[in-house]
Design a protein around this nucleic acid. Structure first.
Lengths: 138, 138
DNA sequence: TATTGTTATACTCTATAACTATA
DNA sequence: TATAGTTATAGAGTATAACAATA
């Protein structure tokens, strides 16, 4: 393939990728906002199916631990989670309250059923997409 | 498909999508930084193959015009572009200087050849991915 | 000494609102 | 009145650095 053409292919595909991810994000943002939680709090809730140490959430969200402290503070003040003692006394587990769990279910249901990924693609296409993306991620 | 399972599929695929887009972004960021331009300036340069009014760049980058003003200021102070008069006297065209054009070529070459999208997928796979993503974007 | 989490603070990206000049 | 661009400013999201408690 010619060099100039290659550039265009790469650029357009990158743009498609970024726009799709933006769509997924903004879909998730609108779901969260309809449930009156900011998106990053909603994402944390979704990831806390089981109580987990803050460091673990930091990894899963790919955010600094100091930011997780702030997220946890906000969720706590909304009554959606509690910090409970962990194995060793430095560790704190983030555990959803019953209200947090309720919210998690609602969030998961809407996000699972109405996501553009679910509505636009059938099962086979989703599997295909999953493979291609995994390949990119190496 | 069961509801709980569906949720997991949607979440995992969204995560894959977002992580792939993040990879594309951070690849581009590292390319730009190796050429000593911040990524958003680099993206503007890439999009300015031909001189274009600021409003057009605003659309292509999906950013507010006031932000484009700031981007243009920075590129101008780096000697990478000039504002030249457009058709009517309100309009200004953003035109790369010769140094800007040189940089654009380097940028495009590396981004086109070494992008994870290009290295991880073959031509057929890229076409497939492009279709799936277009479907999601509707 | 290394690890978990916290605090205070500052930075980056980007938008909003009010404006100027031109159409 | 509508459009292109500018200015000044503010906000959201996130990180850095120094710290405390525990291991």
């Amino acid at each position: 393939m010619q060099s100039q053409k290659k550039i265009e292919v790469a650029r357009q595909l990158s743009q498609l990728l970024i726009r799709s991810a933006d769509l997924a994000k903004s879909f998730f943002a609108s779901v969260s906002e309809s449930l009156e939680v900011p998106p990053h709090l909603a994402m944390a809730i979704l990831l806390l199916e089981e109580p987990a140490p803050m460091g673990e959430l930091s990894q899963k969200m790919a955010r600094d631990k100091s930011y997780i402290t702030q997220v946890a503070d906000q969720l706590e003040s909304l009554g959606l989670l509690e910090r409970v003692p962990g194995e060793d006394r430095r560790t704190k587990l983030l555990a959803l309250t019953s209200e947090g769990k309720k919210l998690r279910l609602k969030l998961a249901e809407v996000a699972g059923n109405q996501s553009p990924i679910m509505t636009a693609l059938n099962e086979e296409e989703r599997a295909l997409l999953s493979n291609l993306l995994s390949k990119i991620l190496g």
